[in-house]
Protein backbone atom coordinates (compact mmCIF):
# COMPACT_ATOMS: atom_id res chain seq x y z
CA UNK A 1 0.00 0.00 0.00
CA UNK A 2 1.10 3.55 -0.79
CA UNK A 3 -0.21 6.66 0.96
CA UNK A 4 -0.19 10.17 -0.49
CA UNK A 5 -0.02 13.49 1.33
CA UNK A 6 -0.51 16.80 -0.45
CA UNK A 7 0.21 20.17 1.10
CA UNK A 8 -0.97 23.06 -1.04
CA UNK A 9 0.46 26.18 0.51
CA UNK A 10 -0.02 29.75 -0.65
CA UNK A 11 3.28 29.82 -2.55
CA UNK A 12 4.47 26.21 -2.77
CA UNK A 13 2.72 22.84 -3.21
CA UNK A 14 4.42 19.80 -1.67
CA UNK A 15 3.69 16.10 -2.16
CA UNK A 16 4.87 13.11 -0.13
CA UNK A 17 4.33 9.41 -0.77
CA UNK A 18 4.91 6.81 1.93
CA UNK A 19 5.00 3.01 1.78
CA UNK A 20 2.11 2.55 4.20
CA UNK A 21 4.57 1.72 6.99
CA UNK A 22 5.56 5.29 7.73
CA UNK A 23 8.57 5.38 5.40
CA UNK A 24 8.88 8.21 2.89
CA UNK A 25 9.32 6.98 -0.70
CA UNK A 26 9.01 10.15 -2.75
CA UNK A 27 8.93 13.91 -2.23
CA UNK A 28 8.08 16.61 -4.70
CA UNK A 29 7.49 20.35 -4.72
CA UNK A 30 6.34 22.97 -7.19
CA UNK A 31 5.08 26.55 -7.11
CA UNK A 32 1.34 26.69 -6.36
CA UNK A 33 0.79 29.35 -8.99
CA UNK A 34 -2.32 31.44 -9.10
CA UNK A 35 -4.82 28.59 -8.92
CA UNK A 36 -4.82 25.79 -6.34
CA UNK A 37 -7.27 23.88 -8.52
CA UNK A 38 -4.70 23.79 -11.33
CA UNK A 39 -1.95 22.99 -8.85
CA UNK A 40 -3.94 19.95 -7.69
CA UNK A 41 -4.30 18.76 -11.28
CA UNK A 42 -0.56 19.23 -11.92
CA UNK A 43 0.21 17.23 -8.76
CA UNK A 44 -2.01 14.41 -10.02
CA UNK A 45 -0.04 14.31 -13.28
CA UNK A 46 3.31 14.37 -11.51
CA UNK A 47 2.22 11.56 -9.18
CA UNK A 48 1.11 9.47 -12.15
CA UNK A 49 4.36 10.18 -14.00
CA UNK A 50 6.33 8.96 -10.97
CA UNK A 51 4.34 5.73 -11.00
CA UNK A 52 1.86 6.42 -8.20
CA UNK A 53 -1.88 6.14 -8.51
CA UNK A 54 -3.70 9.05 -6.91
CA UNK A 55 -7.06 7.55 -7.94
CA UNK A 56 -6.37 4.40 -5.98
CA UNK A 57 -3.96 5.12 -3.11
CA UNK A 58 -5.35 6.79 0.02
CA UNK A 59 -4.73 10.51 -0.07
CA UNK A 60 -5.01 13.35 2.47
CA UNK A 61 -4.78 17.03 1.52
CA UNK A 62 -3.69 19.87 3.76
CA UNK A 63 -2.67 23.50 3.52
CA UNK A 64 -4.57 26.48 2.33
CA UNK A 65 -5.73 24.65 -0.82
CA UNK A 66 -6.76 21.46 1.00
CA UNK A 67 -10.39 21.64 -0.06
CA UNK A 68 -9.72 21.79 -3.81
CA UNK A 69 -7.93 18.45 -4.24
CA UNK A 70 -10.62 16.31 -5.89
CA UNK A 71 -8.76 12.99 -5.49
CA UNK A 72 -8.07 13.41 -1.75
CA UNK A 73 -10.41 11.43 0.50
CA UNK A 74 -9.91 13.76 3.42
CA UNK A 75 -8.76 17.28 4.30
CA UNK A 76 -6.81 17.80 7.53
CA UNK A 77 -5.55 21.19 8.69
CA UNK A 78 -1.90 22.09 8.34
CA UNK A 79 -1.59 22.34 12.13
CA UNK A 80 -2.28 18.62 12.63
CA UNK A 81 -0.25 17.63 9.55
CA UNK A 82 2.82 19.68 10.44
CA UNK A 83 2.74 18.27 13.94
CA UNK A 84 2.56 14.71 12.62
CA UNK A 85 5.22 15.22 9.95
CA UNK A 86 7.66 17.04 12.22
CA UNK A 87 7.45 14.29 14.83
CA UNK A 88 8.42 11.81 12.13
CA UNK A 89 11.22 13.96 10.69
CA UNK A 90 12.82 14.75 14.02
CA UNK A 91 11.97 11.51 15.79
CA UNK A 92 10.51 13.35 18.78
CA UNK A 93 7.13 13.03 20.50
CA UNK A 94 7.64 16.29 22.44
CA UNK A 95 8.61 19.29 20.38
CA UNK A 96 7.75 22.90 19.60
CA UNK A 97 7.43 23.63 15.90
CA UNK A 98 7.90 26.98 14.19
CA UNK A 99 6.61 26.80 10.66
CA UNK A 100 7.20 29.82 8.45
CA UNK A 101 4.76 29.58 5.61
CA UNK A 102 4.07 31.77 2.62
CA UNK A 103 1.15 33.63 4.17
CA UNK A 104 1.10 32.49 7.75
CA UNK A 105 3.46 31.50 10.50
CA UNK A 106 2.45 28.81 12.95
CA UNK A 107 3.81 27.76 16.29
CA UNK A 108 2.69 24.30 17.33
CA UNK A 109 3.37 22.71 20.65
CA UNK A 110 3.35 18.89 20.60
CA UNK A 111 3.41 16.82 23.76
CA UNK A 112 3.28 13.05 23.92
CA UNK A 113 2.59 12.89 20.19
CA UNK A 114 -0.48 15.16 20.24
CA UNK A 115 -1.01 18.83 19.47
CA UNK A 116 -1.42 20.52 22.83
CA UNK A 117 -1.67 24.12 21.67
CA UNK A 118 -0.92 26.27 18.65
CA UNK A 119 -0.73 29.86 17.52
CA UNK A 120 -1.17 31.32 14.08
CA UNK A 121 -0.62 34.88 12.98
CA UNK A 122 -3.85 36.60 12.07
CA UNK A 123 -4.66 38.18 8.74
CA UNK A 124 -1.50 40.30 8.73
CA UNK A 125 1.55 39.10 6.78
CA UNK A 126 4.15 40.32 9.29
CA UNK A 127 6.51 37.50 10.20
CA UNK A 128 5.67 35.32 7.20
CA UNK A 129 7.47 34.23 4.05
CA UNK A 130 5.54 36.90 2.22
CA UNK A 131 7.22 39.61 4.30
CA UNK A 132 10.66 38.36 3.22
CA UNK A 133 9.55 38.06 -0.39
CA UNK A 134 8.40 41.68 -0.50
CA UNK A 135 11.63 42.90 1.08
CA UNK A 136 13.74 40.72 -1.23
CA UNK A 137 11.86 42.15 -4.20
CA UNK A 138 12.65 45.67 -3.07
CA UNK A 139 16.33 44.70 -2.84
CA UNK A 140 16.13 43.06 -6.30
CA UNK A 141 16.97 39.59 -5.00
CA UNK A 142 15.14 36.51 -3.68
CA UNK A 143 14.35 35.39 -0.13
CA UNK A 144 17.15 32.80 0.15
CA UNK A 145 19.82 35.22 -1.13
CA UNK A 146 18.53 37.97 1.13
CA UNK A 147 18.87 35.72 4.18
CA UNK A 148 22.36 34.62 3.11
CA UNK A 149 23.36 38.25 2.56
CA UNK A 150 22.28 39.11 6.11
CA UNK A 151 25.27 37.16 7.46
CA UNK A 152 27.57 39.89 6.09
CA UNK A 153 25.57 42.78 7.50
CA UNK A 154 25.25 44.39 10.92
CA UNK A 155 24.11 47.38 12.93
CA UNK A 156 21.03 48.35 10.97
CA UNK A 157 17.45 47.97 12.01
CA UNK A 158 13.94 48.50 10.77
CA UNK A 159 11.28 49.04 13.36
CA UNK A 160 8.06 48.43 11.52
CA UNK A 161 6.48 44.96 11.62
CA UNK A 162 3.95 45.89 8.99
CA UNK A 163 5.00 44.68 5.55
CA UNK A 164 3.87 47.85 3.84
CA UNK A 165 5.57 50.24 6.27
CA UNK A 166 8.68 48.06 6.50
CA UNK A 167 9.01 48.27 2.74
CA UNK A 168 9.01 52.08 2.95
CA UNK A 169 11.69 51.85 5.64
CA UNK A 170 13.79 49.64 3.39
CA UNK A 171 13.36 52.08 0.53
CA UNK A 172 14.50 54.97 2.69
CA UNK A 173 17.54 52.93 3.82
CA UNK A 174 18.37 52.35 0.14
CA UNK A 175 17.98 56.08 -0.41
CA UNK A 176 20.46 56.78 2.39
CA UNK A 177 22.99 54.56 0.66
CA UNK A 178 22.96 51.78 3.28
CA UNK A 179 24.60 48.56 2.01
CA UNK A 180 22.38 45.72 0.84
CA UNK A 181 23.99 43.43 3.40
CA UNK A 182 23.09 45.76 6.23
CA UNK A 183 19.55 46.15 4.98
CA UNK A 184 19.25 42.36 4.64
CA UNK A 185 20.52 42.04 8.21
CA UNK A 186 17.85 44.50 9.38
CA UNK A 187 15.09 42.62 7.55
CA UNK A 188 16.12 39.21 8.91
CA UNK A 189 16.48 40.54 12.46
CA UNK A 190 13.07 42.16 12.22
CA UNK A 191 11.30 39.00 11.10
CA UNK A 192 13.18 36.91 13.67
CA UNK A 193 12.03 39.29 16.43
CA UNK A 194 8.43 39.12 15.28
CA UNK A 195 8.37 35.32 15.10
CA UNK A 196 10.26 34.94 18.37
CA UNK A 197 7.74 37.09 20.23
CA UNK A 198 4.97 34.86 18.91
CA UNK A 199 6.87 31.62 19.60
CA UNK A 200 7.90 32.60 23.11
CA UNK A 201 4.28 32.22 24.19
CA UNK A 202 4.39 28.48 23.53
CA UNK A 203 8.00 27.24 23.36
CA UNK A 204 8.92 25.53 26.62
CA UNK A 205 12.14 24.72 28.47
CA UNK A 206 13.44 21.20 28.02
CA UNK A 207 11.60 20.78 24.73
CA UNK A 208 13.37 20.94 21.37
CA UNK A 209 12.25 23.76 19.10
CA UNK A 210 12.35 22.95 15.39
CA UNK A 211 11.95 25.00 12.23
CA UNK A 212 9.85 23.74 9.33
CA UNK A 213 8.48 25.34 6.18
CA UNK A 214 10.01 26.75 3.03
CA UNK A 215 12.81 28.59 4.83
CA UNK A 216 14.02 25.62 6.89
CA UNK A 217 17.37 25.53 5.09
CA UNK A 218 18.05 29.25 5.56
CA UNK A 219 20.70 28.92 8.26
CA UNK A 220 21.07 32.63 8.86
CA UNK A 221 17.36 32.96 9.64
CA UNK A 222 17.45 29.94 11.93
CA UNK A 223 20.43 31.44 13.78
CA UNK A 224 18.76 34.85 14.10
CA UNK A 225 15.61 33.16 15.37
CA UNK A 226 17.59 31.07 17.90
CA UNK A 227 19.26 34.23 19.14
CA UNK A 228 16.01 36.20 19.53
CA UNK A 229 14.14 33.30 21.11
CA UNK A 230 17.05 32.33 23.35
CA UNK A 231 16.68 28.67 22.38
CA UNK A 232 18.59 26.33 20.14
CA UNK A 233 16.49 25.73 17.04
CA UNK A 234 17.21 22.80 14.75
CA UNK A 235 15.94 21.94 11.31
CA UNK A 236 16.54 19.33 8.67
CA UNK A 237 16.71 19.00 4.93
CA UNK A 238 13.16 17.81 4.35
CA UNK A 239 11.49 19.99 6.96
CA UNK A 240 9.74 21.92 4.18
CA UNK A 241 7.78 18.70 3.52
CA UNK A 242 6.60 18.30 7.13
CA UNK A 243 2.98 19.10 6.21
CA UNK A 244 2.91 16.75 3.20
CA UNK A 245 4.60 13.93 5.13
CA UNK A 246 2.14 14.39 7.99
CA UNK A 247 -0.75 14.26 5.51
CA UNK A 248 0.63 11.02 4.02
CA UNK A 249 0.90 9.53 7.51
CA UNK A 250 -2.76 10.44 8.12
CA UNK A 251 -3.60 8.85 4.74
CA UNK A 252 -1.98 5.59 5.90
CA UNK A 253 -4.67 5.41 8.57
CA UNK A 254 -7.62 5.97 6.20
Amino acid sequence: MRAIGIDIGSSCAKTAVTDGQGNVLWLDQMPTGWSSVEAAEEIRKRLAAAGFDPGHDPCVATGYGRVVVPFAQKAVTEISCHAKGAQKLFGLADLDIIDIGGQDTKVISVRGGSVRDFLMNDKCSAGTGRFLEVMANTLRTDSASLIAMAAEGSNTSISSMCTVFAESEVISLIGKGESRENIAFAVVTSIAKKIASQASRLCADGVQTVLTGGLCEADQLRKALSLELGRDIISCENARYAGAIGAALFAEKL
Binding site: Y64, V76, T77, E78, I79, S80, D104, S114, V115, R116, D117, F118, M120, D122, K123
Partner: peptide, 27 residues
Amino acid sequence: PYMAIETDYSVSDSGQLATRLEAFLEM
Protein backbone atom coordinates in the same frame (compact mmCIF):
# COMPACT_ATOMS: atom_id res chain seq x y z
CA PRO B 1 -8.45 23.06 25.82
CA TYR B 2 -8.93 26.75 25.10
CA MET B 3 -8.45 29.03 22.15
CA ALA B 4 -8.97 32.78 21.94
CA ILE B 5 -9.60 34.52 18.65
CA GLU B 6 -9.79 38.22 17.98
CA THR B 7 -11.79 39.33 15.01
CA ASP B 8 -13.90 42.09 13.52
CA TYR B 9 -16.90 42.35 11.20
CA SER B 10 -14.94 42.00 7.95
CA VAL B 11 -14.66 38.73 6.05
CA SER B 12 -10.94 39.14 5.38
CA ASP B 13 -9.89 36.68 8.09
CA SER B 14 -12.62 34.06 7.46
CA GLY B 15 -10.23 31.60 5.79
CA GLN B 16 -7.62 31.79 8.49
CA LEU B 17 -10.21 31.63 11.26
CA ALA B 18 -11.73 28.51 9.69
CA THR B 19 -8.31 26.83 9.62
CA ARG B 20 -7.61 27.76 13.23
CA LEU B 21 -11.00 26.57 14.44
CA GLU B 22 -10.73 23.37 12.43
CA ALA B 23 -7.24 22.70 13.81
CA PHE B 24 -8.55 23.34 17.32
CA LEU B 25 -11.26 20.70 16.80
CA GLU B 26 -8.68 18.25 15.42
CA MET B 27 -6.61 18.84 18.54
